[in-house]
Write a protein that binds this DNA or RNA. Sequence first.
DNA 1: CTTGAAGCTCTAGTGGCTAGAGCAACTACA
DNA 2: TGTAGTTGCTCTAGCCACTAGAGCTTCAAG
Lengths: 138, 138
Amino acid sequence: MYTIGAMSKATGVKVPTIRYYEEIGLLDEPGRNAGNQRRFDQAGMDALGFIKHARDLGFSLDDIRALMGLDGQLGDDCAEADQIARSQLENVRERIAKLEQLARELERISHLCDGGNGGCCKVLTALADHSQCAGDHG
Amino acid sequence: MYTIGAMSKATGVKVPTIRYYEEIGLLDEPGRNAGNQRRFDQAGMDALGFIKHARDLGFSLDDIRALMGLDGQLGDDCAEADQIARSQLENVRERIAKLEQLARELERISHLCDGGNGGCCKVLTALADHSQCAGDHG
DNA sequence: CTTGAAGCTCTAGTGGCTAGAGCAACTACA
DNA sequence: TGTAGTTGCTCTAGCCACTAGAGCTTCAAG
């Protein structure tokens, strides 16, 4: 049996966040001791570890709910779980591409100021005027 | 003079978002016509364009507030604006690095399912067990 | 038996919007 | 001038995934 603090330490999920996961039904309500404090079992610990890891991988809580719903069933779990993971990968790749475009743009803007220029700030001008941009970020 | 709808069309910022920017003091309150509808001038249009572009580049509304505060002043505007832009670039680069790590991890997990395997879903197992991960994402 | 850490519930706030209700005003056409 | 349809207005509430704080109770160590 684990206290909520022990769960937090073991998984790296903050205490209020654990209570939040319980509140939204992502974590099963654990038992309570005589003093109304939560006491988690190993299944609770495993579930929280799963959630933490999936969160770190960028899955939404809804995705995680779906993934956890699959667990323990037979049949096409794997196809479905795989689908969710692949779609998340797609998502991550898109975000990377977009951020790389932004980084290029920001680099360009930053370079405008390298030597310092009297009075008129080119960074602000660049931000004000999209037409100066190389690519079509955003 | 532009209506809020014209502003929206011209910049790509949605109408409620424009009102929101005004509410939080990011956009100056525009004048109103006899029927209490907003009528923006060119300065308002330029400001909204600036905000949109900076948002597309990933700046927070707080950053944008700071950048707009600099505009029109003399002296070290440029240094300060440059600093904000560079710090945003740093931020974007970090996010890219983190996402790339996640993509690698997700790829690894997805490959586990390539051939299909009977009954036990390796994707779910991989998600449950961080120790299988190659790098230290998250 | 006391003290301090850890637990509890509850409310409210974060960022950056988005959605909807229920109206008022404007615009185009007949 | 009438009317229909679009656009505008304010206000409240909701989204995601937490985070912070108040004010209290319970637990564990010495």
